[in-house]
Design a protein around this nucleic acid. Structure first.
Lengths: 249, 249
DNA sequence: ATCAAGGAGGCACAAACATGCAAAAAGAAG
DNA sequence: CTTCTTTTTGCATGTTTGTGCCTCCTTGAT
């Protein structure tokens, strides 16, 4: 690795994590601590970072650069998405289909995330442009403009060869007894497929949708490993618990 | 291999890989490290790259990514696009791959257009949201973020079952004798496939790209039914006409 | 006050570099 | 075609840079 490259990496890590520890960097970048110290010294003399004992901190005022904005946004993120973030770890293969809530979630994913994301939604794919360590696999098909997802036989077939650790399902309507439903058959088929090839499935729903039904059933609600919601009343909560669904509130 | 050719190759590799290492280039290009160093020195003094110990980095903005490219040469690209509009009629099946020029074209398509558009580029697909009578078929694959297109084996296979009346090819580099070339093999393969399943192929190029070469050849330039450009000088024009290529200027 | 962790400065070595030179290749002039 | 010049390349030389290790000093937590 080039010296400049390594130093840039240190700056990137610093931007994300607000502090760095020399001994830690030494391991992560596979060079001796001496070299790290020399790097920090150099960057400090350039005024890029502020060196302290054991490591370094960001310099100057919290500039409103991209990664910082990410963090500011992080504070004001919707509760739903923030709860879902806990389920996302490095090196996972995750299916994320299209929905406004899912798009919000993707926008809050840390730039440092590593892994693979499979999606049939062009907006989701585009939202991942800046995540350098996330491999994005797009599932093709016929574009349904209303919900901006690819559906159809091609979509279905492409999913046949795939497996995922986690499926983050965009939920339009859900009812404790009827299950998850969507307005079109094509969409139901694809969601069903995605669910069947994933180890775990989670869904995010605002409380006003917790007992609504649409035309085409995707699956019973207990196919969800977790249902993430907020401010749900006790009565409905009990209905879901009766179906043995873990609710995260 | 010519010196210029080699240096162009170095730039292309740098474009793709964001860094180059002298010793590595020496092997890949089969010349001594001294020669590579001289090349890097020269390119650096021309301000094209930034030389560092062991190799070189890209100069200027960290990545000339899709959204950046979108803004440069905006007006000449939209001029090109308007010329290409003449080839687009109702009820055609058209393949449009990813490039900023193609995105311009799509943005200029009349809302009343009827037909089918096949694309492997999420931004192109999204730009067609409001065209109610255009069926959009997305080709899936692995998303290449730099150019925002889906590539890879899945892309290739999905194209196997399709045929199109017209292919509007995004052109990265073109040379009258060498042909059309791109910096990555995956991209070359997909473009070649698209070209082979289309009845006619047209390409739009700004004049500064008319004699440039990259690593991977897509096809000879005379595979284009029409080459749309603007303000091209007579000398280069003759070179193209020698290859029996119809230039629209 | 003590003492382990972190840091500074020096040394050593390998990798990368500049420079000069000579041979080969390409062009120009006769 | 021959001769001469220029360009390009590879090699040999000595120099610089980057890195790890070592020793000794400093810091700051307990």
């Amino acid at each position: 690795m080039l010296k400049q490259e390594r130093q840039q990496k240190i700056i990137d890590i610093l931007d994300e994590e607000h502090k760095v520890i020399a001994s830690d960097l030494s391991k992560r970048l596979s060079v001796s601590e001496d070299t790290i110290r020399r790097d920090l010294k150099e960057l400090d003399s350039q005024g890029v970072i502020k060196r302290v004992h054991s490591g370094a901190l960001r310099k100057g005022p919290p500039v409103e650069d991209f990664s910082t904005r990410q963090n500011i946004f992080h504070e004001s993120k919707s509760n739903l998405a923030s709860k879902a973030l806990d389920f996302i770890k490095d090196d996972m293969v995750i299916i994320i289909d299209g929905s406004t809530t899912n798009l919000q979630l993707v926008n809050q994913l840390p730039l440092s995330l590593k892994g693979t994301i499979i999606t049939n939604s062009p907006p989701i794919a585009m939202a991942l442009t800046n995540h350098q360590d996330v491999e994005v696999i797009m599932i093709g098909g016929t574009l349904f403009k209303q919900s901006m997802v690819n559906l159809g036989i091609d979509t279905h077939e492409a999913l046949n060869n795939m497996r995922a650790d986690l499926y983050i399902m965009g939920i339009y309507k859900i009812d404790p007894e009827i299950g998850i439903s969507v307005p079109s058959l094509a969409e139901a088929l694809v969601k069903r497929k995605m669910e069947s090839i994933s180890n775990e499935t989670i869904g995010m729903v605002t409380k006003d949708k917790l007992d609504t039904i649409s035309n085409h059933i995707v699956c019973p609600s207990n196919h969800l490993t977790y249902l993430i919601t907020e401010g749900v009343n006790e009565e409905i909560k009990k209905l879901y618990e009766k179906q043995k669904i873990t609710i995260i509130d």
